[in-house]
Computed example of a mutant assay.
Amino acid sequence: MVNPLLRLDGVHTHIGQYHILQGVNLTVNEGGITMLLGRNGAGKTTTLRTIMGLWKPSQGTVTFDGKPIGGKDTPSIAQSGIAYVPETMAVFHDLTVEENMKLAARSGPPDAARLEWIFGFFPALKRFWHSPAGVLSGGQKQMVAIARALVEPQRLILIDEPTKGLAPAIIEGMIGAFQELKRQSTILLVEQNFRFAAALGDSVAVVDDGRVVHAGSMADLVGDSGLQERLLGLSLDAHQ
Score class of each variant (00 low, 15 high):
Leu234Asp: 03
Thr88Ala: 15
Pro86Gln: 09
Asn100Arg: 07
Ala124Cys: 05
Leu221Ala: 08
Leu232Lys: 07
Ser107Gln: 15
Val91Pro: 04
Val24Thr: 09
Leu232Met: 11
Ile171Leu: 04
Gly108Asp: 02
Glu116Pro: 01
Leu54Trp: 05
Ala147Phe: 14
Ala83Arg: 02
Gly10Thr: 02
Ala198Gln: 11
Leu6Phe: 10
Gln59Trp: 11
Gln140Tyr: 05
Val144Gln: 14
Asp209Ala: 15
Leu26Glu: 01
Thr88Val: 13
Leu54Asp: 06
His12Thr: 03
Gln154Lys: 13
Val212Gly: 02
Leu158Cys: 06
Gln184Ser: 13
Arg49Trp: 03
His130Asn: 14
Arg39Asp: 08
Val204Lys: 01
Leu231Trp: 07
Val144Phe: 02
Phe119Lys: 08
Pro132Thr: 11
Thr34His: 14
Gln154Asn: 01
Leu166Glu: 11
Arg148Trp: 01
Asp94Glu: 15
Gly81Met: 10
Val85Tyr: 09
Val135Ser: 12
Leu6Asn: 05
Trp117Lys: 13
Asp160Ile: 11
Asp9Arg: 15
Ile187Tyr: 01
Gln184Cys: 05
Arg230Lys: 12
Pro57Cys: 03
Gly233Ala: 07
Pro153Gln: 01
Ser107Trp: 11
Ser225Asn: 01
Leu136His: 02
Phe92Thr: 13
His12Ser: 00
Val222Met: 08
Leu6Gly: 02
Gly10Leu: 01
Pro75Glu: 03
Leu150Ala: 08
Gly53Tyr: 06
Glu30Met: 03
Ala83Ile: 01
Lys141Tyr: 06
Gly71Pro: 10
Gly201Lys: 03
Val24Pro: 02
Ile82Ala: 08
Ala105Asp: 06
Lys141Glu: 04
Leu227Val: 08
Gly165Leu: 00
Ala205Ile: 04
Ala198Leu: 13
Thr45Glu: 02
Phe64Tyr: 09
His14Pro: 02
Asp202Gly: 11
Asp209Glu: 15
Met218Arg: 05
Phe119Asp: 03
Trp117Asp: 12
Gly173Met: 10
Val97Ser: 00
Thr46Leu: 10
Gly134Asp: 08
Glu191Ser: 07
Leu189Ser: 01
Ala238Ile: 06
Ala113Pro: 03
Arg7Leu: 10
Gly233Ile: 03
Ile51Gly: 07
Thr96Ile: 01
